[in-house]
């Protein structure tokens, strides 16, 4: 342990309460601190919530009354934006939501399996070419997509898989998202090694150590991966645009851009309405997923 400034952890007794509540009597300083903190939080909430509220209000305004109106007061209820937006693009908007959901589901499963396995390999195993392998993994994160998209497209075209969801899902099962591999490596390295070694002494192999010891402790990292994969894949425009050509396979971000054309009249009201619709799954996913962000070593008893 490298934290030399603290004393040995004491055994836990009694209910876990935030440390500052344990003080016998909150000092004036503490109370001021708490009020300030709450005020700051509320200010940040306002800044963070403003855009989504504005989007909702704008989605209820008729075209032509959206721009130049930053107000949050909903003075019109143009529900027709929702009905017309839902049906504006050939297929009902549910098609795009479902397509996106399919891609997202595949991506999440793929990332969870492949990235956690790769991370275990990097963090806990010692093998030949480990350093070059790690460098390659980082290179994957560093190269701009715009110069590898054409070679990658050629590969998928040769495999005859353009206009399918495979180019969007298969890479996730192959751990090409270096971000998450690296994320989980850092989490695994934060877990006490004694756990592994105790299990090894009990005769557990790598498979068991990984599945039974580390994975349960990695819940926050896995939840982070799932949530981020959800949100980033849901919002990923470029690769979905490139690989999906049949409008019946279009995903939400591709469809959303189709409302707006820089050179002609655009349906901004419909675009905002469908933007609101398409943010909802994200909000729900985050709301559901966030409780897993906080489970982990803290709730499993520590070491």
């Amino acid at each position: 342990m490298t934290t030399d400034t603290i004393t040995t952890p004491a055994t836990t007794t009694g209910p876990r309460t935030p440390p500052e509540l344990r003080r016998h009597r909150p000092s004036v300083r503490t109370r001021v601190f708490r009020v300030l903190r709450q005020a700051l939080m509320i200010a940040v909430v306002v800044v963070a919530l403003y855009p989504i509220l504005w989007m909702i209000v704008s989605s209820l305004r008729p075209d032509g009354h959206i721009f130049g109106n930053p107000s949050l007061v909903p003075n019109t209820f143009e529900v027709s934006n929702y009905t017309s937006g839902w049906n504006a693009l050939g297929a009902p908007f549910s098609t795009y939501l479902l397509n996106s959901a399919l891609v997202v589901a595949g991506a999440i499963v793929g990332n969870l399996i492949s990235c956690s396995m790769a991370a275990y390999g990097f963090a806990r195993l010692r093998f030949r070419f480990q350093r070059p392998a790690f460098v390659v993994m980082l290179l994957m994160i560093m190269i701009p997509i715009h110069v590898v998209i054409v070679p990658q497209y050629v590969i998928w075209a040769q495999a005859g898989l353009i206009n399918t969801v495979w180019p969007l899902i298969v890479p996730k099962f192959l751990a090409t998202d270096g971000f998450f591999v690296f994320l989980m490596i850092q989490f695994i390295r934060g877990l006490p090694k004694e756990l592994d070694e105790a299990a090894r002494i009990d005769g557990a192999g790598h498979g068991r150590i990984f599945c039974q010891i580390l994975l349960p402790l990695m819940t926050p990292a896995l939840a982070t991966t799932a949530i981020f994969t959800f949100i980033w894949t849901w919002n990923d425009f470029f690769s979905q645009l490139i690989y999906l050509t049949d409008p019946n396979l279009y995903t939400v971000p591709v469809a959303l851009r189709s409302f707006v054309d820089a050179q002609s009249q655009s349906s901004y009201g419909a675009m905002f309405a469908m933007s609101v619709v398409s943010v909802l799954p994200l909000v729900v996913a985050f709301g559901v997923g966030q409780k897993y962000l906080v489970r982990g070593i803290a709730t499993t008893g520590g070491k």
Binding site: A118, V136, M137, M140, P171, L174, A175, T176
Partner: peptide, 22 residues
């Protein structure tokens, strides 16, 4: 070294790295 185990855990990653990245 854990070469064999590494091949299992990093197998998918390796395929992805060679084909789709390198």
């Amino acid at each position: 070294p854990d070469d064999k185990a590494a091949l299992v855990f990093l197998g998918p990653w390796l395929i992805g790295a060679v084909v789709l990245v390198v």
